[in-house]
Design a protein around this nucleic acid. Structure first.
Lengths: 342, 342
DNA sequence: GCCTCGAGGTTTTACGTATAACGTCGGCAT
DNA sequence: ATGCCGACGTTATACGTAAAACCTCGAGGC
């Protein structure tokens, strides 16, 4: 009755292929593993390949992993996939992985900062290596302890212990933002920073602080906010509502906060960029969805994932893994302008 | 010299635990597999558990999979993770999976519609089941052929062949949009539809068409666009530039297109919502990031993932898998208003 | 006194693969 | 003729786990 009652056609094994091709299982393994040169005749090899194709043979990955002790699977640890930046990192990593018959499994941490508990406790842990984005120091400990090859993304270069590292020149990006705003004449600047305490955000803060310090008469106020639009807006509103002369520019740690900041500005009855300039960071799709479009720093997210995965593959293959530094670039759009003539 | 030269501490196996606890490997397996009732004394069981913990024993998943023929891994097929909706679906699915010691591996299709080739060709194929979102019919074929339990998300209920289905009441959502706009007095409506030809979008089109048809004097024009802000804006601009009386409302297939439509309206020197109302679909973060905030239909994306995974687990456990229908709700925000008094 | 039975284990096997170790059989130099 | 070698395979084994099948021993029934 129920058509779901399949007789369960058992997948063919290498032994089935061997039988069908009239050779031993070992020969099948050699041929399909491309290790047959000088051990099997070309004719036999071709015959084996043919029957394997005919039978629709697919190697059992569990068996292969058991035998080899390697799983061809990498763990990517990211704060949250709903953040487009990390979705793009994943996309890049997965693309490179696929080229090398590798899999990528994700560990998105619930709180958005790092794995709450041991990521391997979740026991999907059949891993060859780990790629981890910048995260809280304590969360890092668990990853280190697993003594798996570790590639860090966008994290402190001073922090050794990773087999490789792929970094974005975040400091340079923030310096470009600062130069842009200071060049336009802005002197009262607010830094709407991420409340998350990771290297990538610390670098933004430092670079901005130093750039502002170099300009006489320029002042910087830093406030922290969780990384969502509403929180960004609320924190920005608080700043704008406080006494004293309002800022003429709000530098945000990412585009999401910038979107919030723009809303805060308009709620005060002011305009972006005429009254207050706002800058973002990341260049997400959001940056060109809002109006005005955000002046922001473009981060090559996919490339981060690609390079990270390539570095991991290098490490796994015993090749020397280069540390990468990726350039970032300011994209000037409509959310910045000279400050209002005082 | 290189500290990377670890002596490779071999992970303890169940046999190591057995030796340390003074029992046989089988006993360890029974105890840790929680199948020891009446076969092993409580004292022994406790001792085994203790030594396993002490040694830091973790079962080798490859070996377990090989033995059991099951991998505790599901494939989630989604168009693109950079679309927040699917990132949220993943998040929900992964959360439920983790509760059951299951893993989720992703297959994001490059073109955004469906797997370009056989998703199993990429050979990560150690899968117990598949959860697939609405996609092009031809791409579906590959999934069916794999005779793995298949759970479909947001797809045609008439299309049998899935072991379970989790659907959103998309039609109802679109009816709510239509009722809202028609109730406000809109009569010239443009449907900015997705160019992707899948069930979920077909339903939107049909529901809107039928709702408009029921109102005398109401007219509907449908145009298709790729799912990104720029494309949405461009298509909307074309529509607005064409001759004839302009629409008073633009109904979009998702929030991304709606953001584009809003920009198109303003480029024509018109205002949202005073001159033209715009509605979205999905209720992404984007919907409250743009200004005005979008009137849209909230889709419980995480729930889709959760229910989908639960359904798959049910099927795998031989339990009857219920088909789910999730309600959606209109969220009225600032992008809709009565049409301008003609 | 013998049989049964259950509690509490142990021995053994199979899962499918990769590969080390081992034939076998001509041909060719010595 | 003998030894050796290369070409072409095969046989055997191990990876770590789950679980079926099998042992052993003491208590209890008759």
């Amino acid at each position: 009755m129920s058509s779901a009652q399949q007789p369960a056609p058992p997948r063919p094994t290498s032994r089935d292929v061997a039988r069908a091709a009239g050779v031993s299982q070992a020969t099948v393994s050699l041929v399909l593993g491309d290790k047959w040169r000088g051990r099997v005749s070309a004719a036999t090899a071709e015959r084996v390949r043919g029957t394997a194709r005919d039978l629709g043979y697919r190697p059992n990955l569990a068996a292969r992993s058991l035998r080899l002790g390697r799983t061809r699977t990498a763990l990517l640890v990211v704060p949250a996939l709903t953040n487009e930046f990390f979705a793009r990192v994943y996309t890049g990593a997965a693309a490179v992985a696929a080229e090398h018959d590798f899999g990528v499994v994700l560990y998105p941490s619930p709180d958005g900062t790092g794995p709450a508990r041991d990521p391997f406790a979740s026991a999907r842990a059949a891993l060859d290596g780990v790629i981890a984005s910048s995260m809280a120091a304590d969360a890092l400990g668990a990853l280190r302890g697993a003594d798996l090859p570790l590639v860090m993304l966008d994290s402190d270069p001073e922090d050794h212990g990773a087999a490789a590292r792929v970094n974005l020149d975040i400091a340079d990006g923030m310096r470009q933002v600062a130069a842009h705003l200071l060049g336009l004449g802005h002197r009262r600047i607010v830094h709407l920073a991420s409340a998350v305490d990771t290297w990538t955000f610390a670098v933004r803060a430092r670079a901005l602080r130093e750039a502002v310090r170099d300009v006489p008469g320029a002042a910087l106020l830093t406030v922290a906010s969780p990384l969502d639009v509403r929180a960004g807006r609320e924190v920005a509103e608080t700043v704008l509502a406080s006494s004293g002369p309002p800022p003429t520019a709000i530098v945000c740690d990412d585009d999401i906060l910038a979107a919030g900041a723009c809303k805060a500005v308009r709620r005060r009855g002011l305009r972006v960029p005429e009254d207050i300039s706002v800058t973002g960071f990341d260049d997400l799709a959001l940056a060109t969805a809002v109006e005005p479009e955000l002046t922001t720093v473009r981060l090559p997210a996919e490339q981060v994932g690609e390079r990270g995965m390539r570095a991991l593959l290098d490490v796994l293959a015993g090749r020397p893994a280069a540390h990468h530094d990726l350039a970032v670039g300011l994209v000037v759009r409509g959310s910045t302008a000279p400050p209002p003539a005082a």
